Simulated assay, not measured.
Amino acid sequence: MTQEHVVSAHLGLRERKKRETRVALSQATIGLCVQRGWDNVTVEDIASAANVSVRTFRNYFSSKAEAIAASHLERMLRIADSLRAQPAAEPLWESIARVVQAEFVPQGEASVNAPRDQRWIDGLRLMLAEPALQGEVVKANAAAQEELARAIAERTGTDVTRDAYPKLVAAVVGAGSAVAVEHCMRPDPPAPLAVTLREVFEQIAVGLPTP
């Protein structure tokens, strides 16, 4: 292995470690804010839960809101990465529906009938309504759609700078996923996420065919 390859591998590993730390901090922030309430969670609490220093948290995020929004961005980046790995001959919307399902419902169909924790859902709903979070979510959505659009452009042979299609599909994927999650957070009747995601993307596929 050449020195260039060693450096490349090292940088790849370092970047993966950084992403893992970001995810751990983000998940710790979400968990604490859902359980305790937004105003009852400090950066010190988050750092302790993630087993890192406060300085480490500050190296990655400027606020609780930014940390929470990072989970959404990371999930959409994984969806873009997974889409690139799908069979090129497969219909686009079949690939999209599968990779979205895998990220939002990691356990697949085993999770369809799992009982929901209403206290968690109530806490999550309150957290997502926090005004401080809204701006960070908008920024995360923009970054997520940009990367997803690039993956879609590669898959469809379109140009992300000239063609509207990849950006349109990326926006629809984001909107469809958000609608499915919001629908499943209704207090009654229960709406399993796996089923709802499948229904949402089946309906999208009918109305937005691949060029």
Rank of each mutant, 00 (worst) to 15 (best):
M127P: 02
T196H: 01
S111F: 06
P106F: 07
V54T: 14
L193H: 02
E44K: 12
W38Y: 13
N51L: 10
P91Y: 05
L197A: 09
Q35A: 15
D117T: 07
H183R: 14
M1F: 10
R22D: 04
L148V: 08
A180N: 00
P209I: 11
L197D: 08
C184P: 03
V179E: 04
V160E: 13
S62R: 15
A175P: 02
V181D: 04
K18I: 12
P91R: 06
G174Y: 07
N59T: 08
I204V: 15
P106T: 10
A47W: 01
L124Q: 05
Y60K: 08
R162N: 11
D81H: 14
R119I: 01
G108C: 09
A180R: 01
K167D: 06
V52Q: 07
S8D: 07
P209G: 10
A89V: 10
L126W: 02
A102W: 06
R75K: 14
L148M: 12
A175D: 08
T42A: 04
V105Q: 05
E109R: 13
S111A: 15
P192E: 06
A69S: 11
P211T: 13
V172T: 15
R155Y: 11
T158A: 10
E146N: 09
S71C: 02
A110F: 09
R22C: 07
Q27G: 02
W120E: 12
A102Q: 12
A67E: 00
P115T: 14
P187T: 09
A194C: 02
A110L: 15
L124K: 03
E66Y: 09
N40G: 03
T196R: 08
S177N: 05
Q101I: 06
G31S: 14
A132V: 01
A49G: 03
G157N: 07
Q101R: 15
R78A: 13
F201A: 05
I204S: 08
N59Q: 13
R19T: 06
V99S: 05
Q118L: 15
A178H: 05
L25I: 03
A129N: 11
L128V: 02
Q35F: 00
R14L: 14
G176D: 07
A85V: 04
L83Y: 01
E66A: 14
Y60G: 05
R22G: 03
E130C: 03
L92T: 07
